[in-house]
Design a protein around this nucleic acid. Structure first.
Length: 298
DNA sequence: AACCTTCCCTGATGGC
DNA sequence: TGCCATCAGGGAAGGT
């Protein structure tokens, strides 16, 4: 499930390969992923990609006359493919780290979009569950602005400030995990990093926001940024479908402290990690390190 | 307005 | 072996 660190890793892998290049051809098959007419997608051909940036979990390609926007949803993959190179049909094991890695993949039944660049490389969009969304917005329209205006604080930017974070929490009664998942609060946090941030902040996910102490909110402010930065440092978390733009896996799954560790010993206190459901999402926490009442320690 | 639930989608997995 | 149920979840839409 691509969250901010995964999307940013993909952006960094793509940016030098696509910015400044002209799109030569677009192959798109009808799919609910596309929030735009196929003709508009095919109209990207001939335009130059001027910049590639990210807001929350959205990737935005600015072209000459429009913006091409990608949200990867649950299983979306955006990868580069050089048709002159050999495709990989499986996973290769990394010789030193032992991690699985791949090379480029050929298009298959889940590849919904292929974009040819002037240098012969292709950018492929693949999405098994089709929860991803792809948009094309004309430069004149306000569509892009409207889409991005729904998003909250950008955690790895200078606009991520404690006073705003606290403001947006005030008078909220929902569970703190539900708030973290709300992209209108902080943009880019998903289920994995929400659980990891709450563990680092020593806050139980089921706590109500209005019951949090000031010092707990301050810890959460920092831990959200910390877990996202760490995820980025390790190239993202590959649990199921995530690969970067070169088809390689990230390694942050090795660093997770609670997500996916139900029943295993807490790395801090040794008690078994608990699992419950909040906002229809699997939620992992340590009942000892993340007590149900305010706690200053240790 | 704020909060909560349902739904979309496919592949992996486990029980019988 | 085959079949079916269950689970994973981002975000839009609809309900209270």
């Amino acid at each position: 499930m691509p969250e901010l660190p995964e999307v940013e890793t993909i952006r960094r892998g793509l940016v030098d390969e696509v910015v400044g290049r002209r799109i030569d051809e677009v192959l798109a098959r009808q799919c609910r992923v596309f929030q735009t007419k196929i003709a508009l997608l095919e109209g990207l051909a001939g335009q130059v990609i001027r910049s590639l940036w990210r807001r929350g979990k959205y990737l935005i390609f600015d072209l000459d006359r429009c913006s091409f926007v990608v949200h990867l949803g649950m299983t979306g993959q955006l990868t580069l493919r050089d048709p002159r190179q050999m495709d990989s049909d499986g996973f290769l094991r990394h010789p030193t780290t032992g991690l699985q890695r791949t090379r480029q993949h050929a298009p298959d039944r889940h590849t919904h979009l292929q974009v040819a660049l002037e240098d012969g490389n292709w950018m492929l969009y693949r999405d098994i569950r089709k929860f991803g969304r792809i948009y094309v917005f004309e430069n004149e329209g306000a569509g892009l602005e409207k889409l991005l205006s729904r998003l909250g604080l950008e955690p790895l930017s200078e606009e991520y400030r404690l006073p705003d974070f606290l403001d947006r929490m005030s008078n909220r009664k929902l569970r703190v995990k539900s708030l973290l998942l709300d992209q209108r609060f902080v943009a880019g946090v998903g289920n994995i990093y929400a659980d990891e941030a709450l563990f680092e902040a020593r806050i139980r996910p089921s706590r109500r926001v209005h019951g949090l102490r000031r010092y707990e909110k301050e810890r959460l402010f920092a831990s959200v940024r910390n877990v996202l930065e760490r995820g980025l440092d390790f190239g993202g978390t590959s649990l199921r479908d995530y690969v970067n733009s070169d088809g390689e896996l990230g390694s942050n799954q090795e660093e997770l402290r609670v997500y996916g560790r139900a029943g295993l010993p807490c790395l801090v206190c040794g008690n078994a990690i608990s699992k419950t459901v909040i906002s229809q999402r699997g939620t992992h926490f340590c009942a000892h390190c993340q007590p149900s009442r305010p706690w200053k320690g240790p």
